[in-house]
Design a binder for these strands. Structure first.
Length: 337
DNA sequence: TCTATGACGAACC
DNA sequence: GGGTTCGCCATAG
């Protein structure tokens, strides 16, 4: 694979999401690996100088924070107002995803990518694995806490213009993997700040013009603005992760013709998840302004309460009503294809 | 992570 | 028809 900068998002239930960027921060690979065996195959294909940033701690806490069940890294981030999962002192009491993370670091070490816990910014690192935390990366990139915007929106906005070739609507795991990969890119160039103790674990984030540096290890007085490209001319061409459920849902809804409607269940079915009607509702709420969500009604034909003018818009499009409900028999769309 | 929370839906009173 | 209960699946923290 051409990407030298790799990010990994670890989940016990969903597996490992991997994103690789090339030197120009274009997405070269975006996949989900079910288990460690699948990761191993990918790892063997990496160039020796690859830098891998992982959204998981490499090892349990060493108990450096007096009387607490978390690491120095967690304490540092908590003081920044960033919440994160505490890392316990023994592998046994670590949650499943963390244990998967420990195993991942070991696997990478065995494949020539030793874990690094950097103490100070210095010579660019390569051929190694570091810990990162996507939430912190977004914070470093945007310079502001999330606020009212949704997590997905915040992540995408942070990555926009900094990573190119990213598919439109990735799920959070994939976005986090991309953020991790971007963090690896920064790290390899020496543009990073770290939080934690080098003997226990250091969480690395991009160093940008935003000042998190004063709070982190490595500091560095130089102000480093992150070069931001507009991504023009960078068409995604690499083999991409198959569309997520969310993306398929939006694509389906976008295709409902004016004057017709579909039920939440219809959309879920066409998006490949017959039982996902409820999730379609969640997605409509999140993407109300990107797709004609007023054309999605419930199984009884009732338009959504929001936006308020959903029913009015449907009437304006000529959709026949039966009282407060859409006449499904007449207006129900037959689906894509 | 785990747990709660929905622009749901089908099956039952 | 209308209310309840329970299973579903994606988020948010």
């Amino acid at each position: 694979m051409s990407g030298r900068f790799v990010g990994v998002d670890v989940s016990a239930t969903r597996g490992f999401d991997l994103c690789a960027l090339d030197d120009a921060r274009r997405v070269a690979l975006l996949v989900r690996a079910r288990d460690l065996d699948a990761v191993a195959i990918l790892a063997r294909g990496l160039p020796r100088e690859a830098v891998i940033a992982i959204d998981a701690p490499p090892a349990p806490s060493r108990g450096l924070v007096e009387g607490k069940r978390y690491r120095v890294a967690e304490r540092a981030l908590m003081s920044l107002g960033v919440a994160l999962y505490p890392v316990p002192a023994s592998p046994g009491e670590s949650p499943a995803w963390m244990q998967a993370g420990y195993a991942l670091y070991q696997l990478l070490e065995a494949n020539g990518f030793p874990t690094v816990m950097p103490a100070a910014p210095g010579a660019p690192e390569s051929g190694c694995a570091v810990e990162c935390y996507p939430h912190l990366t977004y914070l470093a990139l945007t310079g502001a806490h999330r606020g009212r915007t949704s997590k997905a929106e915040w992540s995408r906005a942070s990555l926009r213009g900094r990573v190119t070739g990213l598919p439109a609507d990735l799920d959070q795991d994939a976005l986090d993997a991309a953020a991790a990969a971007l963090t690896a890119w920064h790290f390899s160039r020496g543009e990073w700040i770290g939080f934690g103790d080098p003997s226990e674990g250091v969480i690395v984030a991009p160093r940008t013009k935003h000042d998190l540096a004063s709070l982190g290890r490595g500091g560095g007085s130089a102000q480093l603005a992150l070069p931001i490209g507009d991504g023009a001319g960078a068409a995604p061409d690499a083999p991409m992760r198959p569309a997520s459920f969310g993306e398929r849902v939006l694509r389906v809804v976008a295709r409902i013709p004016a004057g017709r409607v579909a039920t939440y269940g219809d959309v879920a079915r066409w998006a490949g998840k017959p039982g996902g009607a409820r999730a379609v509702g969640t997605l409509m709420a999140r993407h109300a302004f990107e797709v004609p969500c007023h054309r999605v009604v419930d199984a009884a034909g009732k338009p959504a309460a929001y936006p308020e003018d959903a029913a009015a818009r449907l009437r304006a499009e000529g959709v026949p009503f039966d009282g407060a409900r859409v006449d499904l028999a007449a207006a129900r769309w037959g689906g894509p294809r």
